[in-house]
Design a binder for these strands. Structure first.
Lengths: 232, 232
DNA sequence: CATTGTGAGATTGAATACAATCGCCTTATG
DNA sequence: CATAAGGCGATTGTATTCAATCTCACAATG
């Protein structure tokens, strides 16, 4: 299995892992909550073994902290790290966009896209359409999930499992921040996705990198302004 | 337990996790090797349960890939991602250095350093001394481990568990690359650590960020030059 | 009064046992 | 001969059981 933000629900362990992560991100399990394996096992109707495995994974993902024989607690929401996480995300997603565009450019000269590219690209098209429809019908609450799927899709196009894994980790934290502090993202941000996608399709690595960087930078500024506005 | 590059060996699970990671990084378990839980359990004299937990964690760390009911294999060494990983690391470590310096500056105005800062700072001093001694006596083979500990120590000073966790993940990959391709790092690189430490101690956030960025950038160029030289 | 030791209860860590699934090889069939 | 169906061995996923450790309350002691 890939370390994923949303697993395929193929095993109880994966389901529980997704469910716990979700409960943490959306506040059902607040920061600092003590988590006992037995209670989770009872809640999901399974034994402690898959629960333990899920907790070990969530620990590496940064959502849970554990000490031997002392149990697990929900991590603190990384509000103090928000700006730095966005900064890292800028570098990270600039790289994924650049790589994706390079891969597209390579397709022009050699044969054509392979099945992996084609499949991912098709899913991205669907995501973009879904997002536009959500914007059109005013269902902005669908955007956060679609937004993550778009950015992870671009990472998938980059064909770098290292970068994709890092983005998953950062995206999880940023989703956590949004869920806790500012709610859904803006509509204007969504519209920029088409431009990024076009740059990648055109094989223009420089434009893809630049547009993705600006896009993430805009999100960063938007997040910070809302957050400080909320504070002041 | 913290998701760590080197756990405290407090439980068999943590020991096995460190051991497997080490075997992967240093090539004892080559990329693509199929890993069966029973063989690992036999090798380390424990049952499959802690082995499974270690594998779930290593999966999120990116060293192992698994599919349900199909088993685990050692991931590919991320050679293609090297330059992008360094780019992300630049942004990441610039942030940790900046935060560490800010925290030091805060100590000047308010009372003094807390125990966490003091403890970490003391360990960093020891690491710097050890590294200098290793350089002096020509034992450059000790530098990679000390190098990781230095950079993780700076991250610890930043007091951001998110950034520290991300650096652990990236550091693991970069260590993997070095072990596989170019051997130990240069001596000149080590000497730059003192300057970074001094900038942090002085509370100069701008200088700390700038020096750390240049330091990582130098590592990046050094890695790439050796690698391409080896290729051509 | 603060501190240290101790014991019970709760909780985690690991071992064993069993069920579910996959991969491959055999075999029947057009 | 190519190919699809089915069964068997190997391996993973989960449940159950027991051992090891921690937490916390409470008492003994300086």
């Amino acid at each position: 299995m890939q370390p994923s933000l949303v697993n395929g629900d193929s095993t109880p362990r994966a389901r529980v892992q997704d469910e716990i992560r979700r409960d943490i991100i959306f506040g059902t399990l607040p920061a600092g909550t003590r988590i006992t394996e037995a209670s989770l096992a009872a809640k999901y109707g399974i034994s402690r073994v898959p629960v333990r495995e899920a907790l070990r994974a969530l620990e590496v993902e940064g959502f849970v902290e554990s000490k031997p024989f002392a149990g697990s607690t929900v991590s603190e929401i990384p509000v103090d790290d928000a700006d730095d996480l966005f900064a890292v995300r800028e570098a990270l997603e600039a790289a994924t966009a650049r790589r994706a565009a390079r891969r597209a450019a390579a397709h022009f000269s050699s044969g054509g896209p392979d099945s992996h590219w084609w499949e991912t690209r098709r899913e991205l098209a669907a995501i973009l359409d879904e997002g536009d429809e959500a914007v059109g019908s005013g269902q902005v609450e669908l955007l956060p999930e679609l937004n993550i799927r778009f950015h992870l899709g671009i990472a998938e196009l980059s064909r770098s499992s290292s970068l994709t894994a890092l983005l998953r980790q950062i995206a999880g934290k940023i989703e956590w921040l949004y869920a806790a502090d500012v709610g859904s993202r803006g509509i204007r941000s969504w519209a920029e996705h088409r431009g990024i996608m076009a740059a990648i399709d055109a094989g223009n690595a420089q434009a893809a990198e630049q547009e993705m960087g600006a896009h993430v930078h805009g999100s960063r500024l938007g997040y910070l302004s809302r957050f400080t506005e909320k504070d002041g």
